[in-house]
């Protein structure tokens, strides 16, 4: 990758961090909090995604 593309990409991602910061802060402070059961459900769903991605990796190997 050319050096100028690297610098432009990093600058763009830096601007993205700067734009997302207030939203992240707001969701952390004022967002609803989940119960243990809510988090267990979310983790189970995300684990199903992990399992599916592993299946896809095995398919292309």
């Amino acid at each position: 990758m050319d050096t100028w593309i690297k610098i432009a990409s990093a600058a763009f991602l830096g601007i993205m961090v700067w734009r997302l910061w207030p939203a992240a802060n707001q969701w952390l402070k004022n967002g609803p909090k989940g119960s243990k059961k809510d988090w267990q459900t979310a983790i189970m769903v995300l684990l199903a995604v992990v399992g599916f991605v592993i299946l896809l990796i095995m398919m292309v190997r």
Binding site: A24, W27, G31, P32, K33, G34, D38
Partner: peptide, 8 residues
């Protein structure tokens, strides 16, 4: 929506 803080 409880995942908002964690995701951001």
């Amino acid at each position: 929506s409880f995942m908002g803080g964690f995701l951001f």
